[in-house]
């Protein structure tokens, strides 16, 4: 897809989604779309570090959780929700930069297990310090508007997709991809690998922090440790890989597919989506590293070739 066409398609999709609350008056549809949009944001944010800088971050939930924790606290204390979300993102980025320099000493799988440990450290600690459930005050619940959450989620998802798309064509994105291909060679040609990786992590965790803030704004009650759960990381990872890691559209496609399967299958079979996605994921890693986006491209090329030969005949 060319840049202009995909931009037009993206804008059209966003515009169509923006009209949904005006047309559809069903909460279950909005809740479903909200989950898709939240997943898109989380997956795109994970995609920045994995797809562009080539680092599998298994501690991503920590940043989502920090965003949620900060936003919830400030918002309930009376701060405007947008301000609270920005503060949440700032905390997530701050923590990312704090541990980033150390974590990026690790390469490949070691980075992955190191960040997994970091995420678990935060989850357990938060679970211990803030063990009681967090519930919104009655007045807030009374004034709860699902549409507000929905539009915020739409804006955030659009922003996340735009960031990843902008990154794709930029010098910054190019440098990040150079690191993914060959870190030593990138360093040798003057790409400051650590600086770029930290930048990628900052961008990624800012979006994750905002997504966490959205989570805190959306849910009426939850355990504060819940957004720190590694399942958030795993969701982002699965969605990104199955959609197509390192692509702009992959996480969007993956999120729609994932949330649909999850919600649809949850009705009859708990966690069945994880079985399917786990196996699908393995198959994609082994057979189709480009994910659904690559599969679609291949099918498209195949169809075009068929049509062309048919015309020639």
């Amino acid at each position: 897809m060319t840049g202009r066409r995909s931009r037009a398609l993206g804008l059209a999709t966003a515009a169509a989604l923006a009209t949904v609350p005006l047309v559809v008056r069903r909460d279950d549809v909005l809740n479903f779309l909200f989950l898709v949009l939240l997943s898109v944001t989380l997956a795109e944010s994970w995609n920045i570090v994995a797809g562009y800088a080539g680092q599998v971050n298994l501690g991503h939930a920590a940043f989502f959780g920090l965003g949620a924790l900060t936003t919830r606290a400030l918002w309930i204390a009376g701060a405007p929700v947008l301000g609270a979300m920005v503060a949440g993102a700032a905390v997530a980025v701050g923590f990312a930069l704090l541990i980033g320099a150390a974590a990026f000493r690790l390469r490949g799988a070691y980075f992955a297990i190191g960040t997994l440990a970091l995420g678990e450290i935060l989850r357990i600690t938060v679970g211990n310090v803030r063990a009681e459930i967090s519930t919104l005050p009655a007045a807030t619940i009374a004034g709860y508007r699902l549409a507000h959450r929905y539009y915020l989620a739409l804006a955030l998802a659009a922003a996340a997709v735009a960031v990843v798309a902008a990154l794709g064509g930029s010098r910054l994105g190019l440098g990040m991809r150079a690191i993914r291909e060959d870190e030593e060679a990138a360093e040798a040609s003057g790409v400051g690998a650590l600086r770029l990786k930290l930048l990628a992590l900052a961008l990624s965790t800012a979006l994750a922090g905002l997504a966490g803030g959205l989570f805190a704004y959306y849910h009426i009650s939850y355990y504060p440790a819940h957004p720190f759960s590694p399942t958030w990381t795993f969701d982002a990872l699965l969605i990104t890989f199955i959609g197509g890691v390192g692509t702009v559209h992959g996480p969007v496609l993956g999120a729609v597919f994932y949330v649909f399967l999850k919600e649809y299958l949850a009705i009859r079979w708990v966690d069945f989506h994880l079985l399917i996605f786990g196996l699908l994921f393995v198959a994609i890693v082994l057979l189709l590293p480009g994910g659904l986006v690559e599969a679609a491209a291949r099918l498209g090329a195949l169809a075009r070739a068929r049509v062309l030969t048919a015309i020639r005949k």
Partner: peptide, 17 residues
């Protein structure tokens, strides 16, 4: 190492489910 990590991860999810 990286691919094995990913495969193990998918396998873990499937086995758990």
């Amino acid at each position: 190492v990286k691919n094995s990590l990913l495969i193990g991860f998918g396998l873990a999810l499937a086995l758990e489910a």
